[in-house]
Design a protein around this nucleic acid. Sequence first.
DNA 1: CGTGTGTATCTTTTT
DNA 2: GATACACACG
Length: 829
Amino acid sequence: MSEAPSPVILPPGSSFGGVHGATSGAAADDLLAGLNPQQLDAVTYRGQALLIVAGAGSGKTSVLTRRIALLLRQREAWPSQILAITFTNKAAGEMRERVVQLVGDSARGMWISTFHSACVRILRREAEQFGFTKSFTIYDSGDSRALIKRLVKDHEADAFGFTPAAMQSRISKLKNELQDAESYARQANMSDPAERVFIEVFADYQRQLQKANAFDFDDLIGQTVYLFRAFPQIADIYRRRFRHILVDEYQDTNAAQYALIHELTRPVQGNAPEPYASNGMMIFEPDPHEAAGVEPGAALTVVGDSDQSIYAFRGADIRNISEFERDFPGAKVVLLEQNYRSTQNILSAANAVIGNNFDRKDKKLWSDKGAGHAIVGFTGYSQHDEAQFVADEVEALRRAGMPYGEMAVFYRTNSQSRALEEIFIRSAVPYKIMGGTKFYERAEIKDALAYLVAIANPADEMAVRRILNRPRRGIGDVTESSIARFAEQHGLSFRDALAHPGQLGVGPKIQAAIAQLDAVLREATEIMLPASGEVAPPTAVAEGLTLLLQKTGYMDALRASRDPQDEARLENLDELIAVTRDFARNNPEGTIADFLTEVALVSDADDLDDESGVVSLMTMHTAKGLEFDAVFVTGVEEDLIPHRISANEPGGPQEERRLFYVGITRARKRLHLSLAMTRAQFGEVTVAMPSRFLQEIPAELIDWRQSPGDVNSRGGTQSRALNARRPGGFGGSGSSGSGDRFAARELPRREGLKPLSTAMDKFPNRVTAKVRDNGDLELTAGDRIRHDDFGEGRVEAITGEGAKRIAHVRFDTAGQKKLLVKIAPIQRI
DNA sequence: CGTGTGTATCTTTTT
DNA sequence: GATACACACG
């Protein structure tokens, strides 16, 4: 691979990446060129079961895509016979793109998707077989929590100490093991009243989902398995269709996903095939040559790395991969250990850390890229200080020629992003946060989507209840109950009860409000699901949504509000409408249900707009599967990584170590590990200790710009040199009195490196929390300014427009900085 | 029925 | 430091 920083992520060994299609037809040479012997094996092996143990950065995506490409190129499989499963939609998109690059358009027709999307596809076709309709809704975790919350209340489960969250996670765990309330009840201790109430809630929850014609995330998988088991002839359809199944990130599959794979790879028993059609769609075209009878199961390829298993908390079972050979006798195993991503220093650190996990097969990544730069360590006084280090370092790398898009900042918990964000804004570093408060979880977006759900799936009572009083219509709890009662008495759905406002026994004003809502819903239904039988135009969803938001007065209410946040909400809604338009453009056939599916299954990690011009901020979980030239792992502290909560969980600390391992192995060339001595969480400042994982990295690999020993919070409580023995606890004592020595120490400066951010001594917690606004402060080159933290300096240039005007300032002591004029704490002098 | 105030609990990680 | 909930008031 080239040494020069490049915004394009080249596949490992892709020196030949540009020569596809040179010799079409027989030649597979270009697909095999540049592969090492193990990779070659992984691409070309043919058999029922193949496990590719792929260490971080060993080129597994490349191997997987070539394997698919080869199958297609050599006519071993039609595109429609291939099912490739990834964990995120983004990964699926990338894989598809790369296969297209290799074999061109013949990649069309493959199923490359996540477990969840694949299951939705199947379920939409088959839902009518078992009591759902194809317009079912998908409950995300927020939806299902809301429902569970209500049920916990109804069943008074809180009296037994059940919180909705605990209830939800228990139910989810069971579902991931393919249990339902009934099967669980059989093995439960029914003399325990808490167990009984749990089972009641579980069963009721499932009833409510069914009644609402909805699946939660776990059901998407679990119910598909159920479908296959209960209707073998349906399962056979898919077994016949998919001859090659490939699963990425296999170490993160849970029991339900494992069962799904098992079902799909079973030999086809049947004396089958009535060409099976559903909803008028032919699902597959039976191949006349292999008309009927027994067929072997699909060939299964799984790729994974047990060292990167980080989703045990959501049911992932590492045994799926470690016992693969037992589950699939005769399976071939290929080990990929050569790393094409990172320099040796980074790998040595990674190996050293992961080597502390005892229950793993030893595996050592190696690289021929050379040692590379040392890992940079930094200890800040506070999280803000740490963030400033990151921002400064990002700028230094940028000036040295690395694009922002090749840099990423990782943290353990989403809440850590705030401090980084503040500093980045003030330093005018362009960034983008992946994950976090998701667009589709914002209240106004959920409201808007609830309107759409109310149209697409009127059986979904939760959605209808949600929009009942949004915007405010004067409909409160009392009226809501009246509607529910009326619906029950007359055997109507909650939605249909709205059509009879006069009989609800409520006041005339409220009657009018209900009638108005009912009318708008009808009007929108006519647009998006025309009764007359004709197909709705592609723009129907956009039109319908606009109509709903306008005629219900939702938008007007926001506009009239003087809450400053409501302006942002309006913008979000506009963006949602824009999303519906995009959707119409990309899916001319797309229905409202398709739109809602897409929305329910995208995560923010999927945001495809690789603007390549911005630094990415994300959790270490989100980082899995990505790689960057420069990586900053922040908050490398005890109680954060490993997270405090993990300490009590079986296998918790080990999973945390794997997570840290995932974080550091994302880096190609530059790795930075940083921490803070004090961290404000929970609203108050607490003292933080360096993570135990830091001590697992050989000292010579880390170049400490400022080591934990150099730093003392608030003038020093005690020495916190990494390997210094700590007598007793810490925090309370503060009596050793040896701190000032360290506090005064001159910070090491290194040649060629940017000076550290200055004014450390007055930095802690000095960062203004409030966003300030300099209004239309006019600055021009040559002006002198004073900055709250950096002191005085001279403006060298102004770039950008309006609110994004950036001042390039050379400070007398702090060096060169970029500042956002609008909000930087500066004044002209 | 809506709004405002006070209070409790919160933060792991995600399809 | 934020948000969600309970409660009291208009």
